[in-house]
Design a protein around this nucleic acid. Structure first.
Lengths: 207, 207
DNA sequence: GTCTATACTTAGATAGAC
DNA sequence: GTCTATCTAAGTATAGAC
């Protein structure tokens, strides 16, 4: 389990900032407002962070750190790929946070999403934490399943890209009026995974 | 064909603003910068627009207007649904701009995407211009194809949602380092459309 | 480590001449 | 309809006492 966000002033600032940034956007949130919600003096922020931007940087760093705790174990999945129903293995490969900071991590992700095409840091953040982390697990897994003849061949890169784009939207819409719940997310993921067809000898579950 | 963006001062302001907003974000762009690129005095902006926010509103209005010219004709598609290969009809249903303002319309869309979860106007814009416009065409089309027994039954709403989420990402990433070209977009759309299975008697094309 | 006070800068917007 | 000049507000950040 990754480090929990504590009750130090620094952590309180991060917590409030994550919330505010997701709620109203990095640019619109002022250091004064962060200070107010964190119940400290505006000047005190600068004891803990050299600049407003550094708060965002720290949030990104925090996310990367915390998130690692939620990674599925690739070796374990590769083992399961040998024996378990392909769709079961695929569903297990979906990332989920493993700790209690889910809310905050979602907020950070949303903030990063808005930096697309503007801020290189946000873009790198999305690449590393969304795209690459899905690809790192799913690509070897799918390639192995195909190699084993357990699922029909398909364009793995293309499939992963579509999946990633879909997942990105789900994350980006998370605090908007388009928000979808976990049940719907699972149904939609199942629909996408149905693009991966088990070979005839495997057929058991149906989506 | 919708009205082209002309060379009036007002249009020049809109053009420059659309570019700047997409490039660096609405909040980061100043009225002074818009004025500079539009080669007018900063104060002159306020002769044409009551406020900076109104420039954005006008861009959204402009998009909605221009976009209508790119809508595929539903009646025509419904006719084709009776006879043409299902996948051909579906691909024809994909929206494309019909005029020369593509670049600018893309920029407006990107700007709106960043307002998700922040700005109700941007959110309404996305709903009306992306989600609803796809749904309005695709839903009756798919339902008809199923009714005709030309494609296998599927959860139309779920499918459209996935498609919409994917398309949104494509649009949102358009000016980022994750940008995908039209060829790849078509391949990925074809992959998604392969979720719509023609009935056996129909099989001809393969994805 | 937190505060008061404030410097410095930049932003959106307006008044009014031409 | 465009300009010069300027107002006013708000934002990031710092100096320095406690």
């Amino acid at each position: 389990m990754a480090k929990q966000i504590g009750n130090t002033t620094r952590d309180k600032i991060l917590k409030v900032a994550a919330y505010q940034f997701a709620q109203r956007g990095y640019d619109k949130v002022t250091t004064r407002e962060i200070a107010k919600d964190a119940e400290i003096n505006p000047a005190s922020i600068y004891h803990h962070f050299p600049s407003k931007e550094d708060i965002l940087d720290s949030l990104y760093a925090l996310y990367s750190l915390e998130r690692k705790s939620g990674y599925p174990d690739l070796n374990e999945l590769m083992q399961l790929a040998e024996t378990d129903p392909p769709h079961d293995v695929l569903l297990k490969s979906i990332f989920s946070y493993s700790d209690k900071n889910v809310e905050m991590l979602d907020q950070i992700l949303i903030t990063a999403a808005r930096g697309l095409g503007i801020d290189p840091k946000s873009e790198r953040f999305i690449r590393e934490n969304i795209f690459e982390s899905v690809e790192n697990v799913l690509k070897p897994l799918l390639e192995r399943l195909i190699e084993l003849g357990r699922v029909k061949p398909l364009d793995v890169d293309l499939f992963i890209k579509v999946l990633n784009f879909y997942c990105f939207s789900v994350a980006a819409f998370n605090k908007s009026t388009f928000r979808i719940g976990f049940a719907e997310f699972q149904k939609e993921m199942a629909l996408l995974f149905s693009l991966v067809e088990p070979c005839h000898s495997e057929r058991s579950e149906e989506y």
